[in-house]
């Protein structure tokens, strides 16, 4: 009897989190109608989303998202997430969308996307003074890439390049990858050009971006599959912002030029 009770208890403990997930899901799809617009982002991904010196969340994408939310009459909530758990966060309804230099290429069928709002390249970053100056030079090198990133996806497409590496190290975030590069643990990083250039310019890091890029791609806002309603609202707001110049203004503020591609 006691055994049976223990088993029942164990079983209910296993099922409970699953049930909780379901409940969150039902809530999640209604989150946007709750008056909140919850944006999931990687808090270590400057300049798209990161922690400002005063501890608040800031970034180009977050500023766009906040503007969209205010135009839709929703309360903007910036929710930092672990990048490799983003699908669970979205599926469980904790966040309404992923808006964080989120690459469409290779993920077309996994999310409901807005139109791309800017383009980006996957580039190779090395230490200044490194022997590596072309993709061919990466043969035998130790290369870092963020887990579950589009840089990783681009490398997995280009198996010839990937196979030429001595080792591919998957790190949690790009700041970590840059520490690994700076300290000589890895020889190169494959990452988003936007992030790399910002880092070199802002942090004054002693890195160089190779002329040859690994892949070119576009950024979009990703919603859970089937959430067309909210997607359409956000898309409309973005187009409105492009038309009245707000988009260009925010882009100027972050990048010194308008690099957005909406409208």
């Amino acid at each position: 009897m006691k055994k049976l009770l223990t088993m029942a208890l164990a079983a209910s403990m296993l099922v409970m989190p699953l049930a909780a997930c379901d409940a969150a899901d039902a809530e999640g799809s209604a989150a946007a109608t709750n008056g909140k617009f919850v944006v999931g982002f990687d808090a270590e991904f400057p300049p798209m989303g990161f922690i400002a010196e005063d501890g608040s969340y800031t970034g180009f994408d977050l500023e766009l998202a906040a503007e969209v939310a205010s135009r839709l009459g929703l309360e903007f909530v910036a929710q930092p997430i672990a990048w490799d758990s983003k699908d669970q966060e979205l599926a469980s309804g904790n966040i309404d969308c992923i808006w964080n230099g989120f690459t469409i290429s290779g993920r077309e069928d996994e999310y409901t996307w807005t139109e791309p709002y800017m383009s980006n390249n996957q580039v190779v970053v090395v230490n200044a003074g490194s022997d590596i100056s072309t993709l061919a030079d990466l043969a035998g090198a130790v290369v870092a890439v963020q887990k579950d990133s589009s840089g990783l996806a681009a490398l997995e497409e280009n198996t010839e390049l990937l196979d030429s590496f001595a080792e591919l190290v998957q790190v949690d975030d790009y700041l970590n990858a840059m520490m690994e590069l700076e300290s000589g643990a890895v020889d190169a990083i494959v990452m988003d050009e936007i992030v790399a250039r910002y880092q070199i310019q802002e942090a004054g890091s002693n890195f160089v971006v190779l002329d040859e890029s690994v892949a070119s791609e576009e950024y979009g806002v990703g919603f859970a599959l089937g959430n067309e309603e909210l997607r359409d609202q956000v898309q409309a707001a973005l187009e409105e912002m492009a038309a009245d110049g707000t988009l260009a203004e925010i882009s100027n503020e972050w990048f010194g030029e308008d690099i957005t591609t909406v409208g």
Partner: peptide, 19 residues
């Protein structure tokens, strides 16, 4: 970034979108 079992589990969970 040592690919011990939990890291593998996290990678798989995110690839399969499953617990």
């Amino acid at each position: 970034a040592v690919t011990e079992m939990f890291t593998t589990a996290k990678n798989l969970a995110s690839a399969q979108v499953s617990v």
